[in-house]
């Protein structure tokens, strides 16, 4: 009996180690197989040109339209979302701090929104679009993605602002600043790295999500020049090209996937670094 006790622990420790390794391995395999398939297909032409006439038959052209489109879309919606999320997260942690019940309710709602699948946001964006008589366009996509990333951004910022000690808040108030001054001049500075991480997290979500923009942005071979034009996005370009029956087009999809993976990796590395940098103004307790 006694020996069994130890044997059981041994077995489970091995299993634990295996499952931890499994997760690391899964990530390694995903990144490796995407890069392995995609990198050989990657060329300067791919990232510097828009699709030409026979692009979808495997002829010349690139996916610049999708790269630029994705970039426009996620930068605009991240900025818009920032405009909403930052005040909201500050409000929750400064004005609502005293009202525990209200604060928890707001967090609860945000968590619910966080869990709504992106395709539902896509359908909702589509409803908004037809309600206001918009056509599938960059603008409609921006609105949809903004709605989709707001909960992500607010919750991430909220987690950061939560860590600000109450003493700092009180010190700022006792020196005579108003609460909104405390919010934007003290809390914001104290949490600068965390906020950048939150913004990058939301940006990554925005650039990588396909389901929410499927209904709303349309798809085009041109780079959009106004908000009212449809636009291509990188995830959708991958998706459509992979669905094509021609091998050359599918191989381009792998290259596009490698580009997207590359972007995402850069974003997460930046997010990691930013929590180390920008610490200058932080007051340590």
């Amino acid at each position: 009996m006694k020996y069994f006790r130890y044997k059981e622990e041994k077995i489970f420790r091995v299993l634990m180690l295996v499952s931890t390794l499994f997760i690391v391995l899964a990530l390694a395999i995903i990144i490796f197989s995407i890069l392995y398939k995609g990198l050989p297909m990657l060329s300067w032409e791919m990232i510097s040109q828009t699709p030409k006439g026979g692009f979808y038959l495997g002829k010349e052209g690139g996916i610049l339209n999708a790269i630029i489109g994705s970039f426009y879309l996620s930068v605009c919606s991240t900025l818009l979302a920032l405009f909403v999320s930052l005040p909201l997260a500050l409000f929750m942690n400064i004005y609502l701090k005293r009202y525990k019940f209200v604060l928890n309710t707001v967090r609860f709602f945000l968590d619910l929104l966080w869990g709504v699948p992106s395709i539902v946001y896509g359908a909702f964006g589509f409803i908004i679009m037809i309600h206001f008589g918009l056509r599938a366009s960059l603008l409609a996509g921006i609105i949809t993605v903004t709605l989709f990333i707001i909960p992500i951004m607010v919750r991430a910022m909220d987690e950061v602002f939560k860590t600000v000690p109450v003493g700092l808040y009180e010190a700022s108030l006792s020196l005579g600043s108003t609460r909104s001054e405390t919010a934007y001049r003290v809390f914001l500075r104290q949490c600068y790295p965390g906020i950048i991480t939150a913004v990058l997290l939301a940006f990554g979500r925005g650039i990588g999500d396909a389901a929410s923009v499927l209904f709303t942005t349309g798809f085009t071979d041109h780079i959009p020049v106004s908000l009212m034009q449809p636009t291509a996005t990188l995830p959708l370009a991958i998706f459509f090209q992979l669905g094509a029956p021609i091998a050359e087009v599918q191989e381009r999809a792998y290259a596009a996937a490698a580009i997207l993976t590359f972007f995402i990796l850069i974003i997460s590395i930046l997010a990691r670094l930013s929590s180390g940098k920008f610490q200058r103004n932080k007051i340590n307790f």
Binding site: I23, S33, L201, I207, P235, A257, L260, T261, I267, S268
Partner: peptide, 27 residues
């Protein structure tokens, strides 16, 4: 181990679903 696993989990969570799809088809 924690120092390794944190970024691994974060990156895994950040990979777009279309990339998972491509990987699914490939592997």
């Amino acid at each position: 181990v924690l120092n390794i696993m944190h970024p691994v989990i974060d990156i895994l969570a950040g990979i777009p679903s279309v990339i998972y799809g491509v990987w699914g088809i490939l592997a």
